[in-house]
Design a protein around this nucleic acid. Structure first.
Lengths: 197, 197
DNA sequence: GCGTGTTGTTTGAATGTTCAATCAATCGCC
DNA sequence: GGCGATTGATTGAACATTCAAACAACACGC
């Protein structure tokens, strides 16, 4: 494994655990067993490590996130809730300390470099694009006038908001209630599609 | 104005603008024109400043947030969307750099002191309690089986998720779409209440 | 009115630590 | 022998926090 890969892997974990600002270069060095010079040979600055991490998330969304979450799930709407239930698993596994790695960074970085902000946005964009594809695949099960892009973004909204509250209260039921509400919304939409006005 | 008030006021603004970790004691001192000894006389540590800020948000939610947002609005469901439109104003006023002060802190602080986490949770609790009251006041306009607590939390979810995306994309339309989706959900609920199954 | 003690507040330089980043020297491979 | 990669001690700035000293306001006895 290259030094670059080592650093990105370690940084993914540490930024997620402690946040960007609270992760020191020294943390990365001790985790990777590298020396500072090696790190700075690969990444000119700490921010470039962050960029590497965000690129890795962006490029790995299908393999690292969606594929595991969607294993054995075919139904497009079921896929949406399978993804949410994948996040639920992450929340439970971390004793409700889970934070979405992208969402947390998006709120922690208050004056992000344009490049960083673009990558945060690209990550959100990829996520919602995947959901939007599911909604397209759902075809006529949703009312024809449904704004599928807006609805996909709403799924992300519910996930991020649910994760934030579950984490703050250290109680997964806050996430569950967000999913239940979203489910109710989808049920109402599917019903409306069956019985057109 | 007491030193304590000065510090809390300055910290509210700086934590909101730059985040907790990126706000230094020196920042607070230069903003308040105090000396470090005075600050540490009032607050034993930086974290105690944070606690003071969170208490101020908790105690000021009605006067500082809800009263302005709800001026001239009586209808309980309209109040919910008036509050969201108040946030929209904040987003626009800050050129889409707005972050919910509580939500941002909730995601920035990765291993918060129990006291801090309790206060973050209390802030969310107060916010949703206010929405839940609106939902109760809406009475039979919502289906009788509606879980009003869960729905109130969902409103917070939509707000936080919408703010996060609007900020990340620097585009208020992401917030607008979240609100539109929530509105659609409420419309479906109100319709379902009119024509019971 | 006047000294004296008391209590709470303010001053700001100093402390020790942590941090991101540097760089001259060295290594190891082709 | 040349060149990219690696070493790790070092730098200087930024950081939260401390503290002895100074100050202000008031109370008390005389």
């Amino acid at each position: 494994m290259s030094a670059r890969e080592k650093i990105v892997l370690a940084a993914m974990e540490l930024f997620w655990l402690k946040g960007y600002n609270s992760t020191s270069i020294a943390d990365l060095l001790s985790r990777t067993q590298l020396n500072s010079g090696s790190l700075y040979h690969v990444f000119p600055s700490k921010q470039d490590v962050l960029i590497g991490v965000l690129e890795a998330y962006r490029d790995g969304i299908h393999q690292q996130l969606l594929a595991p979450a969607w294993a054995g799930v075919d139904d497009p709407i079921a896929k949406i809730f399978a993804l949410l239930s994948h996040y639920r698993m992450l929340i439970v596994e971390t004793d409700c300390a889970y934070g979405c790695p992208v969402g947390s960074l998006a709120l922690e970085l208050h004056e992000p470099d344009p490049k960083v902000r673009e990558l945060l946005a690209a990550n959100f964009e990829n996520w919602t694009a995947a959901i939007e594809q599911c909604l397209s695949d759902a075809g006529k099960r949703l009312p024809p006038e449904t704004d599928r892009r807006a609805l996909a973004q709403f799924v992300l909204t519910a996930m991020e908001g649910g994760v934030m509250q579950a984490r703050t209260h250290r109680d997964v039921s806050y996430f569950d209630r967000a999913v239940t509400q979203l489910r109710a919304h989808f049920d109402l939409l599917e019903n409306a599609a069956k019985v057109p006005a």
